[in-house]
Each structure stands twice: as C-alpha cells, then as structure tokens.
C-alpha cells in the first residue's frame, strides 16, 4: 500500500518534469521559460522526493530525501530570482507580446530626473 502511494507520487513527479521540459521549448522568452523550469520542474522533483520519503519511511534514505526537498524549495526560487534579475540588467528583452513593463517605465522616469 505504502509503496503504491509512493510510486504514484513518483509518476506524477515525472509527468510534471516532462511538462516543464515541454514548456522550456514552447514558451517565447527567457522569463517565461524560467517560470516553466521553476514551477513544473521543482514540483516534479519535490514529488519524486516525497514519494521516496513515503516508500523509505523513517530511515536514513527518508531523512536525506526530506533534507533534499527542503533545500530544493529554498534554492530553486533563489536561483530563479538571481537569473531573472541578472538577465534583466544585462538587457535581455521581454517577448514582444508582453503587455506591460513597469520596471522599464520606472527606470526611465528616474533617468529624466522626476
């Protein structure tokens, strides 16, 4: 029973990982691709680790899976923020279908001395 639940979680995780990879190919610009790689891939990996935790129970493997889960949840949004900020500063353009860019508007206003 416990193994079945764990394997179901792992299967769902693999599906989310695959969707994240599809998103990486289909989406138009860097910022949207970052989101695909954060949301779906972090979800998939956490689900795989959670399935491992359920199967292994309170053992050495389960404790390590729990630690990895927490570190993934801390590290992946930090990395994503660092990449997004660095690429915005380096001048990577948004997709031309984007509807608003408040950061550009505000930095232009500051540049003209307002």
């Amino acid at each position: 029973m416990r193994e079945t639940i764990g394997i179901l979680f792992m299967f769902a995780g693999v599906v989310f990982d695959a969707i994240g990879c599809v998103g990486l190919v289909r989406l138009p610009d860097l910022y949207n691709r970052l989101q695909a790689s954060l949301k779906c891939v972090a979800m998939g990996t956490s689900m795989i680790l959670f399935g491992t935790m359920i199967i292994a129970g309170f053992s050495a493997v389960g404790a390590k899976a729990f630690l990895c889960l927490i570190f993934i949840l801390i590290i992946s949004p930090t990395t994503e923020h660092a990449l997004a900020r660095a690429s915005y500063i380096a001048g990577v353009k948004l997709w031309e279908g984007s509807i608003i860019d408040r950061l550009k508007q505000d930095s232009q206003n500051n540049g003209t001395g307002k």
Binding site: I19, V22, G23, P28, G97, I99, R102, L103
Partner: peptide, 23 residues
C-alpha cells in the same frame, strides 16, 4: 496551484499567456 496552472498553460494549444512586469 501554480504548477497545475502553468502545466495547463504550457499544454494548451493556443499558449494562453499575457506576460509582463508589474510592480
């Protein structure tokens, strides 16, 4: 919620996104 929402957007044939930067 976020990952299911994003999986829906990625798999939808029309790619229903309206991206942008807000404050």
């Amino acid at each position: 919620e976020a990952s299911v929402d994003f999986a829906y957007r990625v798999l939808h044939p029309d790619l229903p996104i309206r991206p942008g930067i807000i404050k």
